[in-house]
Computed example of a mutant assay.
Amino acid sequence: MTVIVITGGSRGIGLGLAHAFASRGCHVVICGRDETSVTAAAEQSGALGVPADVTSRADVRRLWDTATERFGRVDHWINNAGIALAPRLLHDIPEDDVRRLVDVNLVGAINGCAVAVERMLDQGGGFVWNMVGFGSNGRVSRGMAPYGSTKRALAYLHDTLTLEAKGTPVRIGLLSPGLVVTELVAGNDLRSDLRGRRQQVYYEVLSDPLDVVAPWLATRVLSATRNGTRAERLTGPKACGRLATALLRGRLHPALRAT
């Protein structure tokens, strides 16, 4: 059976992925910083839960060791752990908040990649995935400077590791879920004073529910074979198609009709 490790798997997209992989007969291992929430998520999804902080490479190594001790190997390692802040101008964000965001979103992914690539070389192969988000394609928005910077960096990390993995049995992949309806989008983004009505409607038209996105991502992960694979749900042409369809159906807000 395929063995999947998902960092940050106790809620949001990570938990949705755990359910999706488990329903496909995979062995799933998830981690999170809070032991109580990880235990609850593991019981809910049928995964093995491991308390771990991805900003600690020792914790990440322990996560790998726990997975392989239980299941013998890791076929797919997904760096999903991440946090976000409510959109605010950069000078209004406390330094500690920025540091924590960068540590989890970027350092955590780097730790995961370093450990997983090293161990997969030892075991003879495997796939390492990074979950990107807003900013990874260079798009900018007010209030998103720290978060978007980390996701842009993950896109660079993907390209570099793809190059480094060439000629080895390790494969590198990128997951881009698009706009997913989670507590993050509903709580932090749509209610931000920095976002005008136009940006809010973009979210309303382009976002998808988690129970649609997670199975889509899981299918792409399990079918991937090529180093450098990119599984991108909401590409530019797809977004334009949705906006055009919403306009034709009379569902597009007037604020967007002139764009």
Rank of each mutant, 00 (worst) to 15 (best):
N130M: 09
K166W: 14
V3R: 01
T150M: 00
D34V: 08
N111Q: 08
V29M: 03
W129T: 03
D97I: 06
G126V: 05
T160F: 09
T150F: 00
T39H: 09
T160L: 11
V98Y: 03
G148V: 05
L256E: 03
A41K: 02
V185T: 12
L48M: 14
P169E: 07
V132P: 02
R119Q: 14
R191E: 15
P94A: 07
A231Y: 10
N188W: 05
A22I: 06
T162W: 03
N105Q: 12
L194P: 07
T68R: 11
I78N: 02
Q200L: 13
T66K: 09
A155S: 14
L222S: 04
D65H: 10
V117I: 10
V185P: 00
L194S: 10
V74R: 00
A153W: 07
E95G: 11
L106I: 07
R70E: 13
W64Y: 11
A81D: 04
I6L: 10
A155E: 10
P254S: 06
S37V: 08
T168C: 07
A47F: 03
L222T: 04
V74I: 09
R195G: 14
R233Q: 15
A20E: 07
C113Y: 03
R251K: 13
V3H: 00
Q123V: 08
H27T: 11
I13S: 01
L184H: 13
I4N: 02
V102C: 02
Y156H: 12
P51K: 08
C26I: 01
T68C: 12
V38I: 08
V107R: 10
R226L: 12
Q123W: 07
V185N: 08
R242V: 04
D53G: 04
V104W: 01
L90E: 12
L210W: 04
D92Q: 09
V205L: 12
A153G: 13
P215F: 09
P87D: 01
L17C: 02
E35Q: 14
P146C: 11
R220T: 02
D65W: 05
A109V: 07
Y203W: 13
G133P: 04
L63F: 05
T182F: 07
Q123Y: 08
M120A: 03
E43F: 06
F134S: 12
G187D: 15
G148N: 08
L89Y: 07
V212Y: 07
L243N: 06
V201H: 09
L17W: 00
L252Y: 07
I4T: 06
R197M: 14
S207N: 14
L163H: 13
D103F: 02
R195T: 14
K166C: 06
L106M: 11
G14I: 02
F127I: 01
W216P: 02
G49P: 00
V205I: 15
S136M: 05
G241P: 00
Y147N: 04
N105L: 03
L175A: 02
C31E: 01
L248R: 14
E95Q: 15
R119K: 13
L157I: 04
L174A: 10
E95A: 15
V3M: 01
E204C: 06
R70W: 06
E35V: 11
A47D: 08
